[in-house]
Amino acid sequence: MPIALYIAADDETAAPRHAVHCRRYAELRDWTVVLTATDLVPGPDLTGRTGWDQVVMALSDGSVRGIVTRSRDMLAGTTETWQTLTTLAADRNAFLTTAETPAPSAAARARRRRL
């Protein structure tokens, strides 16, 4: 399954470490990383993030079926915002997860394939 890694960090030395962690998480699940996008910005505001824009474009054109990020706070400051983003992914037959959470179950992946 092709996925994107999304990393947001305020420290350019931390970003590669987060990307390695997320890549390992994805590879353990036999997901293929086809895009790694990074924004060097603090906080959850997604406005003007070119890396995030790349991920959304890849979701929209179907070249990725999932997004892995290191933690929710790289994308969302609130649970409500996180839910909005997971809905954005689901509306495109994809998923959004963190390397801190369990991967989607096999049953959930099978349901998405049938859609």
Results as ranks from 00 to 15, higher is better:
residue 2 P to Q: 11
residue 2 P to I: 10
residue 3 I to L: 14
residue 3 I to K: 05
residue 3 I to R: 02
residue 3 I to H: 01
residue 4 A to H: 11
residue 4 A to I: 06
residue 4 A to P: 07
residue 5 L to E: 08
residue 5 L to K: 05
residue 5 L to R: 06
residue 6 Y to T: 02
residue 6 Y to K: 09
residue 8 A to S: 15
residue 9 A to R: 14
residue 10 D to T: 12
residue 11 D to L: 04
residue 12 E to T: 07
residue 14 A to I: 08
residue 15 A to D: 04
residue 17 R to G: 07
residue 20 V to I: 12
residue 20 V to L: 15
residue 22 C to Y: 07
residue 25 Y to L: 01
residue 26 A to H: 03
residue 27 E to H: 10
residue 28 L to W: 06
residue 28 L to Q: 14
residue 29 R to P: 01
residue 29 R to V: 05
residue 30 D to L: 13
residue 30 D to M: 15
residue 31 W to T: 01
residue 32 T to S: 15
residue 34 V to H: 04
residue 35 L to I: 09
residue 36 T to C: 07
residue 36 T to G: 00
residue 39 D to W: 05
residue 40 L to D: 03
residue 41 V to I: 13
residue 43 G to Y: 10
residue 43 G to S: 06
residue 44 P to Q: 00
residue 45 D to A: 11
residue 46 L to S: 12
residue 48 G to C: 04
residue 48 G to V: 09
residue 48 G to M: 04
residue 49 R to T: 07
residue 50 T to L: 12
residue 50 T to R: 13
residue 50 T to H: 09
residue 50 T to F: 02
residue 50 T to D: 09
residue 53 D to E: 15
residue 53 D to Q: 13
residue 54 Q to Y: 00
residue 55 V to L: 00
residue 56 V to Y: 10
residue 58 A to L: 03
residue 58 A to W: 03
residue 59 L to V: 04
residue 59 L to N: 04
residue 59 L to H: 11
residue 60 S to K: 12
residue 63 S to G: 01
residue 64 V to H: 13
residue 65 R to L: 11
residue 66 G to W: 05
residue 66 G to V: 07
residue 69 T to C: 15
residue 70 R to L: 05
residue 71 S to V: 06
residue 71 S to R: 14
residue 71 S to D: 07
residue 73 D to K: 09
residue 73 D to H: 12
residue 73 D to M: 08
residue 73 D to S: 12
residue 73 D to G: 01
residue 73 D to C: 11
residue 74 M to C: 09
residue 76 A to R: 14
residue 76 A to G: 05
residue 78 T to Q: 00
residue 79 T to V: 12
residue 80 E to L: 10
residue 81 T to E: 09
residue 81 T to F: 00
residue 84 T to Q: 14
residue 87 T to Y: 03
residue 88 L to Y: 13
residue 88 L to G: 10
residue 90 A to V: 09
residue 91 D to Y: 01
residue 91 D to P: 01
residue 91 D to S: 13
residue 92 R to F: 02
residue 92 R to Q: 13
residue 94 A to S: 14
residue 95 F to W: 02
residue 96 L to V: 06
residue 98 T to H: 03
residue 98 T to N: 11
residue 98 T to A: 07
residue 98 T to Y: 00
residue 100 E to L: 15
residue 102 P to C: 06
residue 103 A to C: 07
residue 104 P to C: 08
residue 105 S to A: 04
residue 108 A to N: 08
residue 108 A to T: 14
residue 111 R to A: 15
residue 112 R to W: 02
residue 113 R to G: 08
residue 114 R to W: 04
